[in-house]
């Protein structure tokens, strides 16, 4: 094993796959000569040259569409968005084109493409730069949506995404790129659609994903001191969702709290809560609760940020509520 940053894990995944398959290339804003806005692609231009590591102008819709067309015609693009907030401009190509192409062509043209970049809040960047798109893209049949929380998962899942023949939305975080974690020396792949039990516990199941799961881990530490053991399930993929792992855990704990960085309405947490009342009804000893971002656009001031995001106190409160303590 070796310790790497999240950004290095992503870079290893892309570089290994580009060495393996000449059809894979990376395009996006600042990915080449600048070495990546967040240094994810550092050194890749040197290794692969300008044909395969391509700087684009600021034109998300245009280069996403060029990626989609290239994928229809035999290539396997990795399209980097500096953040997913900017990719709203490219949503037409992701949702209307990539997700639908195989179906609308009756199976003739698929889009093996990965759209990736920073997702969610990243400090004092205010409303337009702070959105989480998990449920937004998970809603769309035809896409696969991955949201890793550790460097290990990031590398294994990004390699799986690049090899996948379907369009994949890969949600990272500017706030995670510097996170360190252990990964194996050699190559490994993590299958898409498989959740991971990140912490074992018997009292309450926490379902979460992406960087906000770190807050759940902090809450677990705090609650452990009070003798409450949380089981933390990292979904890792939000389309498809590994419901079985969640239900299995709830059958054991009989209680569940979902922790999500995004807004509450039509969210992954609402989906998990629906699924548990439908498929684990008899196993629940309390309503499923959720801790999400407040139902408000993100704001600039630090006090407003503290108020908006899930934190340890709110998770602790929710956990104690499902335990009736």
């Amino acid at each position: 094993m070796k310790t790497v940053q999240f950004r290095e894990a992503l870079r290893e995944a892309m570089s290994e796959e580009m060495r393996r398959d000449q059809r894979v290339f990376l395009m996006g804003e600042e990915v080449a000569e600048y070495n990546g806005a967040y240094k994810v692609s550092q050194g890749m231009l040197d290794e692969f040259g300008p044909k395969r590591v391509i700087d684009t102008p600021i034109a998300e819709l245009g280069f996403a569409g060029i990626g989609v067309g290239a994928s229809m015609n035999g290539l396997r693009p990795i399209v980097e968005f500096m953040t997913w907030n900017f990719a709203i401009l490219a949503a037409d190509q992701i949702i209307n084109s990539a997700a639908k192409m195989l179906q609308m062509s009756g199976g003739q043209y698929g889009c093996p493409i990965v759209f990736r970049g920073g997702n969610g809040t990243a400090g004092q960047l205010a409303a337009t730069h702070s959105q989480s798109f998990e449920s937004f893209y998970a809603h769309v049949p035809g896409l696969k949506v991955i949201t890793p929380s550790t460097p290990y998962d990031a590398k294994g899942l990004l390699k799986a995404a690049i090899r996948d023949n379907d369009p994949v939305v890969f949600l990272e975080s500017e706030k995670m790129y510097g996170d360190k974690g252990e990964i194996p020396e050699g190559e490994y792949i993590i299958p898409i659609g498989v959740a991971d039990v990140k912490r074992k516990g018997k009292d309450v199941t926490i379902v979460s994903f992406g960087k906000i799961i770190k807050v759940a881990h902090e809450a677990a530490e705090a609650l452990a001191k009070e003798g409450i053991e949380l089981e933390i399930i990292d979904l890792r993929t939000v389309r498809p969702i590994d419901y079985a792992t969640v239900v299995e855990s709830v059958k054991k704990t009989n209680r569940c709290v979902v922790v999500e960085e995004s807004w509450p309405l039509a969210s992954i947490s609402s989906e998990i809560a629906y699924h548990l009342q439908r498929y684990a009804f008899d196993h629940l000893d309390a309503p499923v609760l959720r801790v999400t971002q407040t139902d408000t656009p993100f704001a600039f001031s630090p006090t407003l940020i503290d108020e908006a995001l899930p934190n340890v106190d709110r998770i602790v409160k929710a956990v104690k509520s499902v335990l009736y303590r």
């Binding site: 060029i66 990626g67 290239a70 229809m72 015609n73 037409d92 190509q93 062509s105 043209y109």
Partner: peptide, 28 residues
Amino acid sequence: FDKKVNFMGGHGIVGAQIAMGAGVAFAE
């Protein structure tokens, strides 16, 4: 769509095919 004659659609969103078509050319 008809792959046999290299007809790659047939696209319903006005202008979307312009970017995709350039992407097709990119691959060539």
